[in-house]
Amino acid sequence: MSKKIIELKNVNKWFDKFQALKDVNLEVNQQEKIVICGPSGSGKSTLIRCINRLEEHQDGEIIVDGKEISENTKDIEKIRAEVGMVFQQFNLFPHLSILDNCTLAPIWVKKMPKKQAEEVAMKNLERVQIADQAKKFPGQLSGGQQQRCALARALCMEPKIMLFDEPTSALDPEMIKEVLDSMVDLAKAGMTMIVVTHEMGFAKEVADNMIFMDEGRIVEKAKTKDFFNNPKSERTKLFLSQIL
């Protein structure tokens, strides 16, 4: 249970002159669930986007599943295929049906036969309870259904790690629960997860560790219980008092 799968060492990132990440250090073990919270602009999203190199870091080391990620990484696609990601805006492919959204990458990236890919897709769609929508297009689904489809699409690649970038922030309040339920199921199944979210109920339920970020730094990292009951930094206390 304690095998390291992600390691960040002194990671720094700049957007032009603005420093988005400052000396970030982080270790994630297999099957560990980490929830990252913090005010907007604190670098939470940037941090997880660096892990699959949707953003490039300029300084420090990021090691995912034993491979360092840098501008010299030739097979960044292979690493990305192992790291699933769910976005705030779903980012489903609107020109493809729900089923095709799920089978496209397994067929073209993992070279899975079409039939097998469809079986895997249906299994995952069932898991997030939208198997009956498989033939529809993303535009015909509700926000919650779309986000669950995005989750299924990522799971079809059978990733080792799942990243969630504010998965419920763009949803109507009543749809948040259905997405969180699917994420809780996934967590219970033993997936390694890094979740950026403000859903503290979800965090208390599944997170092993909590991270609080502010101005590009990790201000506090603690066991979930300690984080909520006994936060050390004043900044964390202030943040928690405002959102709880």
């Binding site: 949707l54 699933g84 990601m85 976005f87 805006q89 990236v109 993992k110 690649m157």
Partner: peptide, 15 residues
């Protein structure tokens, strides 16, 4: 096209 389409494709391991 929104940037998210590129990012979603990349995140699935597409070159």
């Amino acid at each position: 096209l929104p940037k998210g389409q590129y990012e979603a494709a990349k995140s699935l391991g597409m070159g």
